[in-house]
Design a protein around this nucleic acid. Structure first.
Length: 554
DNA sequence: TGCCCTGGCGC
DNA sequence: GTACGTGCCAGGGCA
């Protein structure tokens, strides 16, 4: 038995766990049998625990230390199978790298960090040995120890860099790190499996029937280009719906070639239906739904370069809701007489733009509840629905040219509309210009809590990122702060943490019978409070809906 | 089989 | 010369 020596208070204590029989791509589902816990206080002082029955004593000994590790969500989730691990500040070298290098790097494995910070390669081949093995070989023991030591060395390099650059890292310590603990406590979400399978089958049959009528594979860009050529005589560069096929259908209709336009419409319909039935069909249930109709997704606290969270296996943030709402109606409460409480930040990104730019007109319009989408529609001579798309696009830094082609309006109308907007919200226009200048001179832009988003000044895209990143990134910080406050309040009140979904500006809690009023209140209060922290002086507002399913609107 | 590309969904 | 930001995922097509 090799228990670690007790950690001193706050001593950096690097930990790394290994398990036998973990399936690839399911690392967020703690499974397999315990193989090893490696603990490194320094490159030369490493302890390793190989017996699960020693875990409790080992964890107790290292408890006073500051835990360090690469992707600690994995280790904590696994260790919680054996020992209760309450929330505590941790130094996660992966999260720290993401928080330092958003926009600069894409890959954040320990091998990447080792190469970048230490200039040393790290072999990860031995990792695959754990999948099938049941006992540790000397090679595996060495691998496990090396990982713990390397994470410790990476941490030291990161810490030195942060000190040198006098960075506060509020976005790590006040946002992402505590948010990790909230995501660790996310509940699974329940699916109405019978309803889902029924819907999947209907979609599948309908897609097959309609595609048979068309007579070619609508998922093959190659075949679609050929079919369009044959049916309409037109040569298209790609088969993108928004950029190519929908404009083509419009044009054909203008030319009174209705049958050809209908052909393009039919092709688009079939393709969408096929996409839907393949993505959300029987295989979705087979892959992701576990006992009791429960789905345990893999939440990533900081996945996007702006700091946004993401979700995979399955991607619950992309469940359709605009064209069809039936899938979200199949996300139901786990509890008898339970209610889904759905909360979203009202006009989150426009409010953040108003906060950044200190534009009184925009701020006033938002606080007065003016309809900005209708305003955009009027500016560009569009429907309200299209006006909403325009606002979204302009928020993402869309140019007049991009707007003209996207909204299918003449370039001069787009330019005039943007001028009118800039006249109405002059400080916002100035802020956009300032962001460009700042980005060009610093190579990065920043969010409210201090996250840097690096720009690739050699590309063509950095201008749009310079505008979008501070807005999207600050929004992400607000939503994560919302989550953190709620998590904290639940613990303080002794209330179970019921959140099961986060969709950028939206949180969903699956409240048990009798809890929904209290949850609504908490979601609203924490949502408003998160605004006071992240965007002081710009009031934020929360919208609420309560019902039996995620698709409920009230 | 693995990888890249295309296309489509969310915000 | 480009053209709307960020992700996740499925199928086609090719090495």
């Amino acid at each position: 038995m090799t228990l670690p020596r007790p950690a001193r208070q706050g001593e950096t204590t690097s930990i790394d766990t290994e398990f036998f029989g973990q399936r690839k791509g399911r690392l967020h589902r703690p499974e397999g049998t315990f193989a090893c816990l490696s603990i490194a206080y320094s490159p030369t002082e490493v302890y390793q625990v190989f017996d699960a029955s020693d875990l409790r004593a080992a964890i107790e000994r290292i408890s006073p230390g500051l835990w360090v590790g690469h992707n600690l969500m994995y280790d904590i989730r696994q260790l919680r199978r054996f020992v209760d691990i309450p929330q505590r500040p941790v130094f996660d070298t992966m999260m720290m790298d993401q928080d330092l290098w958003g926009g600069y790097y894409r890959d954040f494995g320990l091998d990447d960090a080792s190469r970048r910070w230490l200039g040393r390669r790290l072999e990860k081949e031995a990792r695959d040995l754990f999948g099938k093995a049941t006992t540790m070989t000397p090679e595996m023991v060495e691998y496990a120890a090396t990982d713990a030591v390397r994470a410790l060395e990476v941490m030291q390099a990161q810490r030195a860099y942060i000190a040198e650059n006098e960075m506060e890292m509020r976005h790590y310590w006040e946002v992402d790190e505590p948010a990790m603990w909230a995501f660790l406590d996310f509940e699974p979400v329940k699916i109405d499996v019978d309803g889902w399978l029924k819907l999947a089958q209907e979609n599948e049959q309908e897609a097959a029937r309609l595609e048979k009528e068309l007579g070619f594979n609508t998922m093959s860009p190659k075949q679609v280009i050929d079919a369009v050529k044959k049916q309409t005589g037109r040569t298209i560069k790609d088969t993108n719906a928004k950029d190519t096929l929908e404009p083509l259908a419009d044009e054909l209709r203008r030319q009174k070639r209705d049958r050809q336009a209908e052909f393009v419409d039919a092709l688009l319909d079939v393709r969408r239906l096929r996409k839907m039935s393949s993505t959300y069909g029987r295989t979705w249930v087979d892959k992701y739904v576990e006992a009791g109709g429960l789905v345990y997704a893999d939440w990533h606290v900081t996945a996007a370069e702006t700091g946004r969270s993401s979700c995979s296996s399955p991607g619950l943030q992309q469940i359709p809701t605009r064209r069809v709402t039936h899938f979200r109606k199949l996300f139901v409460s786990k509890h008898k007489n339970g209610r889904m409480v759905i909360a979203d930040q009202n006009q989150q990104e426009p409010r953040i733009m108003a906060w950044w730019s200190k534009d009184d007109a925009l701020r006033g319009a938002l606080l007065a509840g003016r309809d900005l989408h209708q305003e955009a529609a009027d500016d560009f001579n569009l429907t309200r629905r299209e006006g909403k798309d325009v606002n979204l696009g302009l928020g993402y830094g869309m140019s007049a040219e991009g707007l003209a082609s996207r909204a299918r309006i003449p370039l001069d109308v787009a330019e005039a509309g943007i001028r009118r907007r800039n006249g109405r919200y002059p400080m916002a226009a100035i802020w956009i210009g300032n962001q460009m200048n700042r980005g060009a001179s610093m190579g990065h832009v920043s969010t409210s809590m201090g996250r840097r988003v690096w720009l690739n000044l050699y590309g063509m895209q950095w201008q749009r990122n310079a505008i979008n990143a501070p807005i999207q990134g600050t929004a992400a910080e607000q939503t994560k702060t919302w989550l953190v406050l709620l998590h904290h309040e639940c613990r303080r009140l002794g209330l179970p943490f019921r959140v099961c979904l986060q969709v950028h500006d939206e949180l969903v809690a699956d409240a048990a019978a009798g809890e929904s009023r209290q949850y609504s209140k908490l979601l609203r209060e924490c949502g408003v409070q998160s605004g006071r922290i992240v965007v002081p002086n710009m009031p934020m507002a929360v919208g609420l809906a309560i019902g039996p399913t995620w698709g409920s609107k009230e």
